[in-house]
């Protein structure tokens, strides 16, 4: 009997090629990164448990649950509003765990439903001085500073496919940083759409582990 090896394969493994792509320019206008190795749990307050869920979030993560259209950083996790009385908890993957909901079960027992989406989504981070110009081709959401400041989250669509989009702290060069969770089965296709949209600005591509961001 052989022992089996369980290699992880990202849905973007084939599509993402680290390095430069698109127009040849001195400074890439768009930086794309696939963030790997994360746990993602969708948390839905049960009927009548809105306040209890908010309290449990505060207790578990040490921060207030995100208000509508907000993403908040907690210790070891980012909490992203994803609809009425629901949120996504994103954290770096703990090695050797198969069921990230297990770690949350106690805190949310009877007050919120939990669904593991760690493999249901791919996470793509977009930054650079032209990130906004590129995103204007992908999403109808207004990403202007006055409307979509750091910490704003949206559930919207790219290529007619639902995504979660949020803005995190600006990068060192002062350019905005946008994160998008896309359905895994669509990831390869949407990645190509993103690369097409970004090509004219020059692209720098990398992959990163969630633990390093």
């Amino acid at each position: 009997m052989v022992d089996f090896v369980w290699n992880v394969r990202s849905p973007l493994q084939q599509a993402v090629m680290p390095g430069r792509a698109g127009a040849i320019v001195p400074f890439a206008g768009v930086k794309l990164a696939e963030i790997r190795d994360f746990d993602l749990v969708q948390i839905f307050a049960r009927r009548g448990q809105r306040e209890a869920t908010a309290k449990a979030v505060k207790k578990h993560y040490g921060v207030d649950a995100p208000a509508p259209r907000q993403a908040v950083s907690a210790k070891g996790a980012t909490l992203i509003w994803s609809g009425p009385d629901q949120l996504m908890a994103l954290s770096a993957r703990k090695p050797g765990t198969f069921r990230p909901v297990d770690a949350l079960r106690e805190s949310f027992e009877g007050i919120a439903s939990l669904s593991d989406q760690s493999d249901g989504r791919c996470l793509i981070r977009m930054s650079g001085l032209q990130a906004r110009a590129m995103l204007a081709k992908l999403t109808s959401v207004d990403l202007h500073d006055s409307v979509f400041p750091v910490g704003t989250a949206a559930t919207t669509s790219i290529d007619h496919t639902a995504v979660n989009l949020w803005r995190s702290e600006n990068s060192e060069d002062g350019s905005p940083v946008f994160n998008v969770l896309v359905f895994s089965s669509f990831a390869d296709s949407i990645w190509h759409t993103i690369v097409d949209a970004a090509a004219e600005y020059g692209i720098e591509i990398e992959t990163r582990s969630a633990a390093s961001v």
């Binding site: 969708q42 839905f44 049960r46 009927r47 009548g48 629901q86 439903s113 669904s115 593991d116 989406q117 760690s118 493999d119 249901g120 989504r121 359905f183 895994s184 089965s185 669509f186």
Partner: peptide, 15 residues
């Protein structure tokens, strides 16, 4: 709406 039920797609979560 009176039922306590939450639903979400997990099509892409599982192979």
């Amino acid at each position: 709406p009176e039922l306590d039920v939450q639903i979400t797609s997990c099509t892409d979560q599982w192979a």
